[in-house]
Amino acid sequence: MLSALASTIILAAAASFAAALPTATADGASKCTTPEKRKSWHDVSESDKKAYLNAVKCVMTSPQKLNRLPGAKTRWDELVSLHQIHALQIHTTGQFLPYHRYYLKTLDFLLRECGLPKEVTLPYWDEPRDAGKFSKSPVFDKVLGFGGSGVGAQSCVMDGPFANLTVNIGPGFKTQPRCLNRKITDFLSSSCGASYVTSAISGSTYKQALDAIYSGPHLYGHMALSMMNGDSITSSGDPVFFLHHGFVDKMWADWQAKDLTKRLKDISGLNAQDPAVGFSEFSGGMEVESAMWGKPGQELLAVTPDPKSGDGGGTITLNHIMSSLGIIPNATVADVMDIKGGYLCYEYA
């Protein structure tokens, strides 16, 4: 039998864990009572940085589990493959902001699977603090960061905790192993400054905010980092991607907070790219863009979700169903609209 002391410790631990979970309301929905605080990497403690980096490395080296995503050899590959599979549905569409919010939740699950303690929350990058000088950011510290700009013809990251790691997904719609790489260009990061952020979230409708965030600080952040050879489809191979998209998610959350009652239901746009447009940051539409990264093959198409799932048409709705193909359960856009709505339970510090 357990000693009285051991029983007390177990009960206390169980109570602590339960307190951290969303609580059920009378109608069976969950309620966010104690939102976790997501901090900028600048403000994360040294011990929490180490725990986060170790968990990311664990995901990167853990064997894949789904056995259905082409080219995936690790759990990290599966995460990157999700972005590849959904690429034509989650860029230059109304899905962009909600899917990437759901994608961050998927990362959180994988990190917990690798032992990330509950008290260590997903970090983001407060990019305005480093605008114009990204390369000097603590994000790229060689010990308590993600390593710096890559070297050589392929810009492979050769320092920090992710030196010499391989990503098996990409480039584009291919599955050809390549080094984890990035190339930092400081002057491009100037467009992630505070005034640009203020402008990006100044619109009154979701469409205005979506377009301004996507084509503004989001796009310039990607250009300044050139993650995975600047590949829009598999840039999530670089773990810095998730700090950048934490920043993007914060911009959306800050925009929503300006008129929360109205904006928690404001969603619009296509649920898949217009072939004539493709990625808005490139010209010529899908056919021209396919010369850069090819087209999805039959293996990818076989696991690609129907972009109209939950909508009944080509326009995104709150009922739109988002999928991680089995890593975490599917969710609707409505589930992720409120970061403190129960399905999600966090706020930005």
Rank of each mutant, 00 (worst) to 15 (best):
V143D: 15
G152L: 01
N67V: 05
D259M: 07
V288H: 11
K65I: 06
P305D: 00
C58M: 03
V167H: 11
N330F: 05
Y346P: 04
S235I: 07
G326D: 04
L21F: 03
T25C: 14
W76G: 10
H83D: 07
A200L: 09
L300R: 07
L180C: 04
I10K: 05
Q273E: 14
H42L: 10
S195T: 15
M228T: 02
G152S: 01
M223C: 10
C179N: 01
P63W: 03
E36W: 04
R112L: 02
H100W: 07
V80W: 06
V120R: 00
D338G: 03
H100F: 14
P329T: 00
A200C: 11
K73P: 00
G285Y: 05
L122Q: 08
L260V: 12
L300C: 03
I90N: 11
G310M: 01
D77Y: 01
L79W: 04
S155Q: 13
P307N: 00
G147T: 07
M1C: 13
G172H: 08
D231I: 03
P138I: 00
Y348L: 02
A194T: 14
E289P: 00
I184N: 02
F146H: 15
N271E: 07
E347Q: 14
C192H: 04
G71Y: 03
S149A: 02
T61I: 05
Y343M: 10
L180P: 06
E113S: 12
S290E: 12
K142N: 11
S190Q: 15
V151N: 06
T74N: 06
K258T: 12
A272Q: 14
W76A: 10
A209G: 08
K262E: 08
Q298M: 12
Q256T: 11
G312Y: 00
M322A: 05
V80T: 07
H218W: 14
L165V: 08
L165H: 11
G203M: 14
P305H: 00
T304S: 09
A20W: 03
G203W: 13
C58N: 09
R182A: 02
H320D: 04
F140W: 15
Y214A: 09
S236K: 02
T317V: 04
E78M: 01
G326N: 08
H245S: 08
V143H: 06
K50L: 09
Y102V: 05
F162V: 00
K105V: 07
P63C: 02
A253K: 09
D126M: 07
E127F: 09
M223Q: 15
L219C: 11
K73L: 07
A55W: 01
S232R: 12
G145Y: 05
L122T: 04
